[in-house]
Nucleic acid binder design. Sequence first.
DNA 1: CTTGACACAGAACGCATGTTCTGTTATATT
DNA 2: AATATAACAGAACATGCGTTCTGTGTCAAG
Lengths: 250, 250
Amino acid sequence: MMARKRKPGLGDRHRKILQVLENFQQANGYPPTIREIGELTNIQSTSLVNYYLNQLQEEGYIAREDRLSRGIRLLKSASNRPMQQAKQNLQNAQQRVEEIFRIPLVGRIFAGEPVPVPASDFNYFDDESTAIEVARSLLPGREALDDLYALEVQGDSMIDAMVNDGDIVIMKRTNEARNGDMVAIWLEDRDETTLKYFYREGKRVRLQPANPTMQSIWIDDPRHLRVQGKVVMVIRQMERSLSHQSPLAA
Amino acid sequence: MMARKRKPGLGDRHRKILQVLENFQQANGYPPTIREIGELTNIQSTSLVNYYLNQLQEEGYIAREDRLSRGIRLLKSASNRPMQQAKQNLQNAQQRVEEIFRIPLVGRIFAGEPVPVPASDFNYFDDESTAIEVARSLLPGREALDDLYALEVQGDSMIDAMVNDGDIVIMKRTNEARNGDMVAIWLEDRDETTLKYFYREGKRVRLQPANPTMQSIWIDDPRHLRVQGKVVMVIRQMERSLSHQSPLAA
DNA sequence: CTTGACACAGAACGCATGTTCTGTTATATT
DNA sequence: AATATAACAGAACATGCGTTCTGTGTCAAG
């Protein structure tokens, strides 16, 4: 026996919560906590607020950062009331601009040389032409977005990392790696840059290629490797210059 | 004995912190924590960040809510042209509203089955949660953007195409391939889907893997292969935030 | 040199806050 | 009416995060 179905669309409480999110952010400059939302909407249980927030997230109205206090972002405004038209436009515009992120393309990466890393005070806005635009929804939420930069892969030397000539890799500037991270590593004894998954195993470090058919390598002395950044994303655009398309074509 | 006096005005670190506050809020929609500020300014101690924040508060640059996580509001901007900046952002926003494109994520692709292709009258707006957002600037300019759809790669069967488990491939709906296109092809005699570069060579067709170390295959009778779409882009996210995880994930 | 204020690091403490679990009530569907 | 599910409440738990304390080096004024 089928039973009660959930009504599609937003209920009164969904709308109320969206309203609260908008007002609170406007008034205080930071988003509310679950408990604060509860007070402002006469919902007495944190779990119930959470319940509604999950639904709003599934519907795409908000984005939440896991386990992060006040980590709620409003994606779509639900206010249907007339309001001040100008203000409304402004708000929408600011929302939209947050959904796109410009990552500076600072150089190339290939096996023969260490990874170029921009300084932390790198001015991101000085060169408009060399930027990769990525929607915020594709980027990891918890990362410090200011530490991101992009590199173009040169040559076929990183096929074991499933990365091709011409691919764009988006890196995060960091010197330390956690287990499971894919990192750019400079191997001092080989004079070589590689992209590998990083695993610390006791005193040794295991570097595992992304390609599951290829073997890991072990580094006995971690001082011989330098973590130069963490790979956050790889983008491959087909149909560009003909340069790398057909080495074998007759 | 009076000793060392504190220099008046803002030091480098004060300015750096104000900069971080502004950028972080702009990028994430909520203010940073003390620890996050520390990471972004290379200050290793929470107490030291707190130390500087108190000074900034006394100077009137920020307001803090006592004991409230992320309760920092920026009152004065450190950038010398605050109004200009906001206006600039607004203008850019309005220009860029159209520069983001939502591509529906319609299913999975793996070796064992033909590629799912949405109907041409597919309603892109009915399911908000299953969409990949891509900046226009990353997409090929001449393509008919309405014909694009996205698939999630399942399994390791396409490593010869340099495509990994979990990757997102953005496809263009088409039945014909031009030389040099990377296409999704259904091989009837093998009951298999592959992603290969397509080259017509006389009566035969050569399918070349993206991985230059692997061999091409030749199809003598082109009627045995069906072009199911053209690969426009491949996106690999290394560390997906939980809130944006693929809705197709189990 | 001595001194005292400043600039910093690290750890510990405790409240704030997100998450989860168990349970209850209400409502739509059969 | 029976039942499955949605809509709720309350509490417990784990972690995030602000706060505070102790200690160390550094630099300028006496």
